[in-house]
Nucleic acid binder design. Sequence first.
DNA 1: TATCAGTTTAGAATGATTCTAAAGTATTGA
DNA 2: TCAATACTTTAGAATCATTCTAAACTGATA
Lengths: 130, 130
Amino acid sequence: MNDIKQFLRSNALRPTKQRIVIAGYLFDGTDKHVTAESLSTELTKRKHIISLATVYNTLHDFYENGLLKKLTLSADRVYFDTNTDDHHHFYSEKEQFLIDINKNIKVNGLPKTPKNKKINKIEVIVHLDK
Amino acid sequence: MNDIKQFLRSNALRPTKQRIVIAGYLFDGTDKHVTAESLSTELTKRKHIISLATVYNTLHDFYENGLLKKLTLSADRVYFDTNTDDHHHFYSEKEQFLIDINKNIKVNGLPKTPKNKKINKIEVIVHLDK
DNA sequence: TATCAGTTTAGAATGATTCTAAAGTATTGA
DNA sequence: TCAATACTTTAGAATCATTCTAAACTGATA
Ligand SMILES: [Mn+2]
Ligand SMILES: [Mn+2]
Ligand SMILES: [Zn+2]
Ligand SMILES: [Zn+2]
């Protein structure tokens, strides 16, 4: 709890009640993939009444400070990922199934990068079926 | 034009005026990535007045018949791809830059597929910067 | 403890997409 | 050929995730 305050402060984020609760949940040591909606639901379950606007604000604040990654897997919701290492995903849209691939993956055979551009990140999504 | 009619019929799609125009544009031989909005704008430029609802309907009809692929690259718009072969993309969200990678790409080092699931498709997105 | 910048919040706004239901059109079989 | 039918188009409303607004609130600072 004081750790969380320090953690927030060290990321230039004021340790407000709401941020402490959200950070406590998100950064509890287990990797998570959340949406604003799923996080809000989880907070409600835990009797923490935090407005949806604040959930959105906080996710963005954390994202902007590099504490979360953002995943665009489906057109109608944004996932935030507590695993900020470079990694990839198994994903099933139908089943809302999403798990990390932490092993080192090599992508071979890429053509040369378009003129005047540079590669920022290579993202591999392994789409799964039942 | 009669080709287009046949083409639509052979895909169980009635050759309506609107579908003929849209198919004529989309399947002119050059690969394209469009959104409902960009396609609508292009049609307007060409003096084809087709309602936005029909643009959406048609893109979905074509998609459902395997004439288009759907790409989820950004949370706030869906791209449809006239290249229906297996392929990957260079992408820059900031610059709306999107080009095909048709070369064969190999992804090595994947962990084993989760129990009771099978791989449907592997998607590689090479995110670019300036 | 006063001050101020940063934060939270309810509710409105936005914008892509989907839905509704009525009018229009392609198909088909007599 | 053409009426009957099924499919399609359309305007406008609805939906829904997300962002915005502006007012109330709170953490930091001295
Ligand atoms: Mn959306
Ligand atoms: Mn949206
Ligand atoms: Zn992850
Ligand atoms: Zn493509």
